[in-house]
Design a protein around this nucleic acid. Structure first.
Length: 240
DNA sequence: AATGAAAGCAACCGCGAAGTA
DNA sequence: ATACTTCGCGGTTGCTTTCAT
């Protein structure tokens, strides 16, 4: 039986099963004084009959003060979906992108919300990842095209100004334009891996940068159909 | 109102990596 | 270099709550 250690009268070295309020209090008190780590010694030092693993798990998943309580938000959900297509079941990696959420929480959320819904989840994940890569490539090409067009225009203007300057032998180089041109050379392309940006079709946080989607949104309908993952009402429901 | 199914979640387990003596 | 310990991760289990009939 799962909770045999608790339920039966047999004395075991370590307690198992649900934590009591008193155990929580002792663990929090201990961590506040001694800090995290050395979990195996926590049991003896804090007067808990729990093994190190259990203490660490309880602290990490439930008692840590920086944990975010409450439901997963639509933004977080979108992020989880995206990161899962990228990382697969590497829950701790995914959790690092969601402050206040634990790997266990995300894992549970994924299993209850998406695992069953997407029949052949791995196939779906592969498809999504392929689409993601295509999209990234397309966006990068778009940016390069725009950048080249801009540079070309700048160069034309620059050349005509230089020509003019040469003819007049007066005036000086338009500094702002040169700076802009230099900026273009050193400019980092906008993050290609920021999942919020990639998902901005359904994400509209005011705090996050958003790439202009309207230009090529139509082109991406075929490659980026979230309905395949969330079901047809996903974005509609989110909007409401 | 009763009951069975599904969903949600806390907690355990096994394993491998990293750290230490 | 090796054995041992500790830590962290992912998978799984089973209890509780919620929902549908």
């Amino acid at each position: 039986m799962y909770y045999q250690g608790v339920m039966s009268g047999v004395e075991e070295k370590w307690r198992k099963g649900p934590w009591t309020a008193e155990e929580d209090r002792l663990l929090v008190q201990h961590v506040n004084v001694h800090g995290e780590g050395r979990w195996n010694s926590v049991a003896t030092l804090a007067g808990l009959k729990r093994n190190g693993k259990s203490c660490r798990l309880r602290w990490v998943n439930y008692l840590r003060p920086d944990l975010k309580r409450g439901r997963i938000t639509p933004q977080e959900e979108a992020l989880i979906l995206d990161l899962h297509t990228r990382w697969g079941n590497r829950w701790s990696t995914i959790a690092r992108s969601l402050p206040g959420r634990t790997d266990n929480e995300i894992k549970n959320y994924w299993r209850t919300h998406f695992k069953k819904k997407s029949k052949g989840a791995s196939d779906e994940s592969t498809k999504l990842r392929t689409r993601l890569l295509k999209r990234q490539k397309f966006q990068q090409e778009q940016r390069q095209r725009l950048m080249m067009q801009q540079n070309e225009a700048d160069m034309k203007k620059l050349m005509s100004l230089l020509l003019e300057e040469n003819q007049n032998k007066v005036g000086h180089m338009p500094l702002a334009m040169i700076e802009r041109h230099q900026d273009k050379i050193y400019e980092e392309p906008q993050s290609l891996i920021n999942p919020m940006i990639l998902l901005n079709g359904c994400y509209d946080s005011p705090n996050m940068p958003v790439t202009p989607m309207n230009e090529d949104a139509g082109l991406w309908d075929g490659l980026w159909n979230l309905d395949e993952v969330h079901g047809p009402n996903f974005c509609a429901a989110r909007a409401s």
